[in-house]
Design a protein around this nucleic acid. Structure first.
Lengths: 174, 174
DNA sequence: AGCAGCATGTAAGTGGTTACATGATTGT
DNA sequence: ACAATCATGTAACCACTTACATGCTGCT
């Protein structure tokens, strides 16, 4: 897949779980996919409009209360599965922390340590956040949850690795 | 730091180690910073031109052989240190693999496993590449190498974490 | 003579962020 | 009445990629 259609995938994915307003799509993405995905309003609304035009989502003007939510159509679900099946390419890595650390000898003294301490703190904060999510989904063993737990587990593994690395480096710096 | 000036930092950093042509800057970045940084020609040449205009780099038209390489000036070194000292913000994460895995229930059967096997293979390939670099720099214990080893170690930690995660998930999938 | 790699650039397009503008709804 | 939050959009701008155009150098 071209790197385009990524937003489309995220939006269709969100709507595959429930009908939502654009605002709610945003909330769902930052809330649920937050630690590994991100979309801004400037992306979501135009995407939603495009999807609606193509018949992949539809505005449900149901009576009474919550009207005007977007719901995914059958074509939308088909498209979602299609997008999921396509191969994708990861964008080239760009790690601002490592770029700075690499030129560590030009860093003013103490700044290297500071960078590593930040990285450690960040990892610890992430682990705390993940622990909370773990707690929340503890009793859910639906098939969907199985995959969601995998993404959570990824975050945990990576955060633990970053934590261990930072501590190792800090020790070496003494 | 705004997310701009990142390319500037990478280019100045490269030139702080040796004078280079634009082509060589690219090679240095993909070669040495390869596993955590990336620049394309379309970025490098305009950046080099801007830097030259600002007096941060200069074209060395030395006699004889290699003429026309860019070398960093004193102002350039000062700017590099300045950029290194500035705080930076990581761009929001976007992990295409996890986005797909998250909607795993909509994946055609076997595709989830395939994604995880790819991730595992990728981690193993990365570890092999890192091992080679380790071997190459084994005997160098200069102060610069100390920091460079940290970035290498980061890659190793993260790759091992990804490998462990993928294997865990594959086991759970049975 | 011809090819591979070195070297420099530019133009078009894209994906994405940010900031702004606007208004409805809800709670206090 | 007011503030906060829900909700929808758009315009400007930015970094970056890709593809293309061009020519040089050194090897075979």
């Amino acid at each position: 897949m071209a790197r385009t259609a990524q937003t489309e995938l995220a939006v269709l994915g969100a709507l595959s779980t429930a009908p939502m307003t654009g605002y709610e799509v945003r909330a769902a993405i930052t809330g649920t996919l937050g630690h590994f995905w991100h979309e801004s309003f400037g992306q979501i609304y135009p995407t939603l409009a495009r999807l609606a035009e193509g018949g992949l989502v539809r505005r449900s003007d149901s009576g009474r209360t919550a009207s005007g939510r977007f719901e995914i159509t059958d074509e939308g679900m088909a498209r979602l599965r299609e997008l999921l099946a396509e191969p994708f390419s990861a964008p080239p890595a760009r790690n601002a922390l490592l770029l700075r650390l690499f030129f560590g000898t030009e860093l003013e003294p103490g700044r290297g340590r500071e960078l590593l301490e930040d990285a450690r703190a960040q990892a610890m904060a992430a682990l705390a956040a993940f622990a909370e999510i773990r707690e929340e989904i503890r009793d859910d063993d639906s098939p969907a949850q199985r995959y969601r737990t995998m993404t959570l587990s990824y975050g945990e593994h990576l955060a633990r690795a970053q934590l261990a690395w930072a501590q190792e480096c800090l020790r070496d710096l003494d």
